[in-house]
Design a protein around this nucleic acid. Structure first.
Lengths: 254, 254
DNA sequence: CGATGAGTTGAGAGCAATCAAGATGGGTGG
DNA sequence: CCACCCATCTTGATTGCTCTCAACTCATCG
């Protein structure tokens, strides 16, 4: 991990990316906004960066901003008093962070990779929501999608075997990769895991040893190949999907 | 179970309950609406009833209406091809059923007890949403709450032991019971379980035998008393909470 | 009074967790 | 440039929790 300047603790900086060439322009909360709306958003926004591993917000602490994730991957985690940890959200580019109408973080938010956020102070953002119905409408759409994803996740945690959990996880990553390239997933796919084995374990409700063992088992069965610690080649997407326990190809992202 | 007329297959009936004395008036999707808004909603709504055990909608099938749950309890379930079932939602009075912008049910919806719905055909409802920002705003609020509940559920399924799952479930029911009476849960509490052992198992990611065993274990340890099949007395709410694994009292419902 | 559905209890098997060594490999400093 | 170091990952042995299969109880209803 290279050493970088920690920009998170600098005072809010001027936006680095303008809305015009924002990579998540058409998927984020602002997706439905028009030129005039964007001007107002642009005036209020500011960027923040975090290094991999840094905590963006602690559960229970005050959080005075909401944000769109521009780049990188962040996780939401919950921890029981004895230390057991469960990931309850995985934020990817275009995902929204924070809850309008609530001033405290409900979960610990951690930068899993280096992360860039497009931030708004909470109060002004809520004011913009009240005046511009396009924002709450889009936020509703995104929240409903997240709820669907959470429900798929409930099935995974409640009923799938360790092997099925790993296969499902890899399939989800592949689908997302394909969605970015606007393709259907199929055949051989190269992936770079954004998560450590431990983070995968927290996502899947397993221990890191079990994650490691099941990855090895999938390799032995020629369903995947491992390239160093983070690289994975899915030899055959369809075959992997058959191992995931799902009855069909999970809904493609539109 | 008494035999009742199956009203679900009758053509849409005139509303039985008027908005004025609707028991969920201030918690449902229409909570923020004013007199004028209610008139329009009232004109479009119709009631439907289902018996305990009846399926309200099958996953993947067309669903031409959305609805508020007026009375009773309904479940959302997902099933893998080999029959494994996981409950992914538990709908209680005031909860919203259906997703605007989607014409197919994503999950199988089942009446767990006898159920009454306040229905709207989907298209007219979407039109009302577009014209009246109070409805999408309230729906967003409700969806965010559901997402929070789903995330608590992820922790339960991913990291809790069978005993902790049962204790958590009973604590959730107690909290909800108390919220209706606008009290804090505490001391001894009488509950009537809305779910069978099997439904509890599907909720908690367990088998019905394990649910039964853990209920018996909690009884042996004098944390609960059983009154027939459905009755449970929580001897001491605080003690039960300590068995649930959570670090603190789950957020009280406002 | 048998039939039925829901719930309880027991015995045994299996899968993932736990405890415990090693292996790997990317990054650093000599 | 090489050797070392540390975090990360892998693998092994064992334990223990939950599932599975099976028998039995209980209340309800025709």
């Amino acid at each position: 991990m290279q050493v970088k300047l920690n920009t998170a603790e600098r005072p809010p900086s001027q936006a680095l990316v303008s809305c015009d060439d924002c990579p998540i322009r058409y998927r984020a909360v602002c997706a439905n906004c028009e030129a005039g709306d964007l001007e107002r958003l642009e005036a209020a926004k500011y960027d923040r960066s975090y290094q991999a591993g840094q905590v963006i917000a602690w559960a229970g602490e005050r959080m005075d901003f909401v944000a769109s994730l521009i780049g990188g991957v962040a996780s939401l985690t919950q921890t029981l008093e004895d230390g057991r940890t469960q990931m309850v959200g995985l934020l990817l580019p275009s995902d929204f962070l924070g809850r309008p109408g609530r001033d405290r973080a409900s979960y610990t938010v951690t930068a899993v990779t280096d992360v860039t956020l497009c931030c708004f102070r909470r109060k002004p953002f809520e004011a913009m929501m009240a005046h511009n119905p396009r924002i709450p409408a889009r936020l509703l759409e995104m929240t409903l999608d997240e709820l669907d994803a959470a429900r798929e996740w409930l099935m995974l945690l409640g009923r799938k075997s360790a092997r099925e959990k790993i296969a499902s996880f890899l399939a989800i990553l592949a689908r997302r990769e394909a969605a970015l390239k606007r393709q259907r997933p199929g055949g051989a796919i190269d992936l770079t895991l954004p998560l450590t084995r431990e983070a995968m374990a927290d996502y899947l409700g397993l221990t890191l040893e079990t994650v490691s063992r099941q990855m090895s088992a999938l390799k032995r069965d020629n369903l995947i190949e491992l390239r160093g610690k983070r690289g994975v080649v899915l030899v055959d997407y369809e075959l992997l999907l058959a191992e995931s326990g799902d009855d069909e190809d999970g809904g493609l992202i539109n």
